[in-house]
Amino acid sequence: MTPDGGIRAQGVRRSFGPVHAVADVDLVAAPGRVTALIGPNGSGKTTLLLMLAGLLTPDAGSIRVAGADPVTQNYVARSRTGWMPDVFGTWDSLTAREVLTTVAAAYRIDAAAGRARASELLELVHLSELADQPAHVLSRGQKQRLGLARALVHDPDVLLLDEPASGLDPRSRVDLRVLIRRLAAEGKTILVSSHVLTELDEMADDAVFISRGRTVATQSVADADRPREWRLTGLDTDALVTWLDDNGTAYRREADGPGLLVELTGDAAAAALLRSAIEAGIDVSSLAPAGGVLEQVYLALEEERR
């Protein structure tokens, strides 16, 4: 791994005519970590990934991907980057195996090694049984997995995954998560954009939030010291409310259910709250984080925007 590996983007801008798709994005993704790229539809995620993949020139700002500048050292940057687009177009008449051997050839891997790599990757994404079927018979989720395999063909240092989980069934999602964690453990830099925030919660180490083409927040998922909302339910909600009032704990009622939302900092605070509730004889039926960390940050940012 090059010392300045990973992804660094600073002040990146790109507009298409009058539309400022990416207005000002700062982003750092470290090797060995999974970084989530989160933002609403049309916030510029895909455009940003295109620039990181070396397909689009930024209007301003600097980018380094795996130690190379995709603008001035495009070839080197491409050789170290694996990109999985959100809309996975595929060569319909080719079989899954041929898609991968073709991509291997396009990455200048010799034919025998390309075939070996294709079989290995098909195994990895559980497409071995469909390996010799034409790609157009694959379902959306299967195509998505083939797309991931394709991004891995040349064993890139940096992986850019645009909505990799869309269209995947639950089993495949788990597989994807395990695979991404494993690739990160090998020291690869992984940037994942997704809408499925709970999904990202479980696989991402860091998160970058963009909105209207700007970086609006950067946050570590594992950061335990940040306050987050926990959802508390009891057998008798009124008793619970009275206890919380007496206790002086701030809470708010859930809009669409019987639960109460309490802001707590860290697991220890949650355990303490639970213990004192039980000691006070309150029948607590559940206490759990309300939504994921990322979802909460995301919704908070949405609030701010309104």
Binding site: A66, Y107, I109, A113, R117, L124, H154, L179, L183
Partner: peptide, 14 residues
């Protein structure tokens, strides 16, 4: 499933 990435001999950055 295995991610034995060392199989690829022609790793571009090498």
């Amino acid at each position: 499933m295995s991610v034995d990435v060392e199989v690829v001999p022609a790793k571009p950055s090498d």
